[in-house]
Design a protein around this nucleic acid. Sequence first.
DNA 1: ATGATTTTCTGACCAACGTTTAATATCTTT
DNA 2: AAAGATATTAAACGTTGGTCAGAAAATCAT
Lengths: 233, 233
Amino acid sequence: MGAQERQQKEKLILEASIRLFTEKGYHATKMEDVAKASKISKGLTYFYYKNKEDLYMAVTKKAFDELKDVFRDIIKIKGRNGLDMLTELSNNYFKFAKNNRMFYDAILNFMGLVQLYNDENLKSNIDPLVLASEHFQKLLEVHHDCGKIGTQMVVQGIKDGSIRPELQPEATFYTIWAMLVGYERLLGPVGFEGKDAKINLETWKPSFNRLLQDMLKGTFQAQKVQPVQGSLF
Amino acid sequence: MGAQERQQKEKLILEASIRLFTEKGYHATKMEDVAKASKISKGLTYFYYKNKEDLYMAVTKKAFDELKDVFRDIIKIKGRNGLDMLTELSNNYFKFAKNNRMFYDAILNFMGLVQLYNDENLKSNIDPLVLASEHFQKLLEVHHDCGKIGTQMVVQGIKDGSIRPELQPEATFYTIWAMLVGYERLLGPVGFEGKDAKINLETWKPSFNRLLQDMLKGTFQAQKVQPVQGSLF
DNA sequence: ATGATTTTCTGACCAACGTTTAATATCTTT
DNA sequence: AAAGATATTAAACGTTGGTCAGAAAATCAT
């Protein structure tokens, strides 16, 4: 069995676990289940993955790769300005989170790990096996890649004039990303039943896109003249 | 043993578990540990709390109560305008997240549950024992309370003229809250080591406060005349 | 081909830990 | 003080993540 066949088997196990995690969740999925679904013995799963969490990290890697595709798909289409790209990115980001809940939860869980990882005092809180995992290291890279792609969009926007030139691209993009993270977690996917109004990503997306525009172009003042009833910004 | 003494014992267990969860994390803390730290037998913890997750929900309740205090502390001081309140809220919110990591993680975990809870299709994914837990129900209320207090700040701001009157208070506040959630998760507490610059909550807080101002007052255009090197907005 | 060696694979087993339970002690009530 | 309710314990149970000795299969050497 060459390296290729081994990778193929790893993939088989990975896909089985993705199916199960999606269906029943991480905790309800037993290693025995993963083994059965992969048609191998339980012990063998530990030959291909160090432990359950390592397997989960592999799933997370797959998840973040797909999220990165969302980023890539947008920037690879030429002929649009940076602002439009970021607007579409936000739409697709929410769509991704909604349609791939388990994947997105894994990504968010990873973001929590990154926090610990970046703090010398807290780094020790991470399971050493996870830290050593190749998946974790690769995840850090993919995370960074996404940051780079997004930053490129801002750079592009500044070049083509759709974004204010005085903005610092990297910080600006991470600010936008942070907003996406927060909105998704607090409001999505079903939103929040307020006292006066039902707030959710769908009804509220136009407001967000406008906020994005205002932020990046600096056009708040201009739009203030047409107050829309119940509008957000 | 009356109801009072029972509550006191519950509190004892709760505090012990808070200590342990903070020190070692949820998974590394065993029920045996909690029992020992509370100087009772393991079995007895199950007399006071249905199971480990129920205990964690109680911890989460305590956490959210303290977060609510952050909200309350701000609004109870009179004589400031709404915008200033929201600015201070954001500062204190980040401070809270940083100084009470375990608590804040519990709150974020709860927010994930709320997502499932609000979606009829996904509600069944929540452990029935958690759903039935009194703590969970109370948490929904506290969550809502925080939303109300924050909304009040926006209302106040509109009244005193520090916030644009065309904004819809509730949606506006949840937008701000969403930002706080996202920033904390993506950037805090140590921030993010970018290629060109180190981004973290501390260095970047002024930019956020300014964004808040611009959003709520609609003053983007006005400030555009003084481009600060490397400034965010 | 055949024996030696490495790689892949299994299933039984282990230990840890959340949870239950049966029995006992303590308090409350009448 | 008897009866009932409440609090408490220790032991046992059941599940499950993880290990291990060894079988089976593939690869290699002669």
